[in-house]
Simulated scan of single mutants.
Amino acid sequence: MGTGHKHAQGHAHGHGHEHGHGHGHGHGHGHAGHSHGPTLSAHDAPETRRSKERAILIAAALTGGFMGAEVIGGLISGSLALLADAGHMLTDFASLLLAWCAFRLARRPADWKRTYGFDRFSVLAAFVNGLTLFVIAAWILFEAVRRLRDPQEVLGGLMLWVALGGLVVNVLAFWVLSRAEGDNLNVRAAALHVMGDLLGSVAAIAASLIIIWTGWTPIDPILSVLVACIILRSAWSVVRESGHILLEGAPAGFDPRAVAADLETSLPGVARAHHVHAWSITQERPMATLEIDLAPGAVADEVRRAVKDRVRETTGMEHVTVEVAT
C-alpha cells in the first residue's frame, strides 16, 4: 500500500506520473523526520531506540535471572502461585528477547524488497507476545481448577520469601520498561508481560501470608485465577492494537471520512477528496494517501500543499501522499 519515496529530512517533494487507467496524476508527499505532530507520536530517534532496546535487555536479564529461583521455590513449597509466576517469567524472558531482537532487526536499512525496512517486525513481536499471554492465562486457569479439586500442602514461609524476591525483581524490570515505553507497542507489550509477573508476585505474597496465618491453602489457586484474568485483559489490549496495525487499520485519531469531508468544506481548491487510506508501519509511523479533484481554476501544486498542511493541522499526520486528478 505504501508509495515509493525518497527519505529526506525536513522537506516535502512531489512528482508527476501517468497511470495506465487513462488519466494523469500529480503526486506528492511530505515528511519531516517522521515527526507526526501533536496527536501522532514521532518516529523514534536513534538514541531513543537504543534506550528502549537497552531497557528491554535489562528487563530480560532481570526476569531470566530470577526465573530459576521461582521454579525451585514453587516446586519445594508446592505453590501454584509461584509456579504460575515462574512459568509466566519463562515466557516473559522469551518474549523480552523477541522484543529485543525486533529492535535489533529494525536497525537494518530499507532495501528494494522491503521499502519500509524491518520496523513492522516489532509489531509482529508484540502480537506474538500478546498471544503468549493468552496461553499463560489458560494454563494458570486449568491448573487452578485442578488444585481446587485436589488441594495440596503449601509451605507458606518459603513461598513468601521467594515471592518477595520476585516482587523486587519485577518492580525493577517494570520501572526500567515504563521509563522507555512512550508509544512503542513492542515495549508496551513487554511491560505488560512484566506487569503480569508483578501482579503474580503480589498474589503469591498475599496467598503466602493467608496460608501462614490461617492454613487455608485454596487461596493460592484462587488468587492465581485473579492474576490470570488481569493478564487476559492486558493480552487482549495488545493483540487488538497490534492486530489492527497488521491489518493496515487507520491510526488512532485518523478518520478517513472526516478528513475527506473537512478538505472539501475547508479548502476552496478541493472539489472532491476520495480514496483516502491511512495505515501504520508501526504505532509511531502512521501514513496516509488520498486523491483530490481540483475545483475550476485551482492550481494543483498550491492545492496539494494546502491539503497536506490541512491534514497535518487536523490530525497531526506528517507523512501524507496527495494525488491530484487531472
Score class of each variant (00 low, 15 high):
197 D>T: 05
199 L>M: 12
199 L>S: 07
202 V>P: 04
204 A>P: 08
204 A>M: 09
206 A>R: 05
206 A>Q: 06
207 A>G: 09
207 A>P: 01
209 L>G: 05
209 L>D: 10
210 I>N: 03
210 I>V: 15
210 I>L: 15
212 I>C: 09
213 W>V: 13
215 G>A: 10
216 W>V: 05
219 I>M: 08
221 P>K: 00
221 P>Q: 01
221 P>R: 00
222 I>L: 15
223 L>H: 02
225 V>S: 02
225 V>I: 15
225 V>Y: 05
226 L>I: 14
227 V>L: 07
227 V>D: 06
228 A>G: 05
229 C>H: 09
229 C>M: 14
230 I>W: 01
231 I>W: 00
231 I>D: 00
232 L>S: 02
233 R>Y: 14
233 R>P: 07
233 R>M: 09
233 R>C: 11
234 S>M: 13
234 S>A: 13
234 S>Q: 13
235 A>L: 14
236 W>V: 11
236 W>M: 08
236 W>I: 03
237 S>E: 13
237 S>V: 14
239 V>S: 11
239 V>T: 12
239 V>G: 10
243 G>H: 10
244 H>S: 13
246 L>N: 10
246 L>M: 14
247 L>N: 11
248 E>Y: 14
249 G>R: 15
249 G>M: 13
250 A>S: 15
250 A>H: 08
252 A>E: 15
252 A>G: 06
253 G>Y: 08
253 G>A: 09
254 F>N: 00
255 D>E: 03
256 P>S: 03
257 R>Q: 14
258 A>H: 11
258 A>S: 13
259 V>E: 05
259 V>Y: 03
260 A>T: 06
260 A>M: 05
260 A>H: 07
262 D>T: 12
265 T>D: 12
265 T>H: 11
266 S>P: 02
266 S>C: 05
266 S>M: 07
267 L>A: 10
267 L>R: 03
268 P>T: 02
269 G>L: 07
270 V>L: 12
271 A>L: 13
271 A>C: 08
272 R>C: 04
272 R>G: 06
273 A>E: 03
273 A>K: 02
273 A>W: 02
274 H>N: 09
274 H>P: 06
276 V>I: 06
278 A>C: 08
279 W>R: 04
279 W>T: 06
279 W>I: 05
279 W>H: 04
280 S>W: 12
280 S>D: 11
280 S>L: 03
281 I>P: 00
283 Q>C: 04
284 E>K: 13
284 E>G: 05
285 R>H: 12
287 M>Q: 10
288 A>M: 15
288 A>S: 14
289 T>F: 01
289 T>L: 01
289 T>M: 07
290 L>K: 00
290 L>Y: 01
292 I>S: 02
292 I>W: 08
292 I>K: 06
295 A>D: 10
295 A>C: 07
295 A>L: 06
295 A>H: 06
296 P>T: 07
299 V>Q: 12
299 V>G: 06
299 V>N: 13
302 E>A: 11
302 E>Y: 06
305 R>A: 14
305 R>F: 05
306 A>Y: 05
306 A>T: 06
306 A>D: 12
307 V>A: 04
311 V>S: 04
311 V>T: 00
